[in-house]
Amino acid sequence: MARIARTLLNRLGGMLVVLAIVVTVVFVIVRVTPGDPAAVMLGSDATPQDIADLRTKMGLDAPLIVQYVQFVLGLLRGDLGQSIFLNQPVTQALASRAEPTFFLTLFSILIAVSIALPVGVLSAVRRGTLFDQIVVTLTMVAASVPSFWLGLLLIQVLAVGQGWFPASGYGGPDTTFLVRLHHLVLPAIALGVVNSALITRFTRAAMLDVLGDDYVRTARAKGAGEGRVILKHALKNAMIPIITVIGLSIAMLVAGAVVTETVFGLPGIGNLVVSAVLRRDYPVIQGALLVVAAIYVLINFAVDMLYVLVDPRVRL
């Protein structure tokens, strides 16, 4: 128990340092804008007075170090700034668009894992067979397909062609959750299938690593059934690299969601970021970047903690 507590504290310390760097990087990114960010945001029609007002509103008049301290203090209060174009706090803008992104990411990872785990395990167990070769080839091709292109093809075939799913949107504000889920099917397939490629390859590789180990041979020699050998002995020991890659995939899914949401017209955080970039709404870009990176750091932390639970030998 003491070991787990020590591990937890160690990792917590590391995570806080990384989060502090993330905050600093995000702060710096907006400040590297050539020229005046306020002038860039308002465009060429803005008067000097408009620009000066916006500079004051964004706190850009203060020295850099003061801006940084104010930025960090704001974050500690849960304040990510104000979107100039949406005229609402960034936290509110992000929160109102979190649902589609959350469920899109969740369903995509579920689709990816439910394809990757069985296929990867089976491919490793039947190494060198036709099935294995097809899996290796297909994962290679799937990893080369841009998710937004697969999304466009799915819209064309399953939405426009067959009419089985909506081609875009997330239903109206008064629609039921089921209707909204229906809107998420195609984007989740587009993202999930592409990301399943990486997880399948890692699952196969991790399984191949352990299938030749002594304890697997011993289990077989003791007469354990093949299913028990694969699931109980091999897969359990192969889980650490698999959990790692699933954790990493979540970041990739969020990146993919930015583009996929645009293809499918989903009113999520990805769509918000793209429109913020086109409008140069820096506070929104900054806030979204920060929140997504923080979520990724937290997921990594959770994955590290899972290691300890999955494999008691692990000391972090």
Partner: peptide, 15 residues
């Protein structure tokens, strides 16, 4: 920790 596309978008927006 930054998803690649998101970081690239932010940098392109800034630069």
């Amino acid at each position: 920790s930054f998803p690649d596309i998101l970081l690239a978008i932010a940098l392109v927006a800034a630069l």
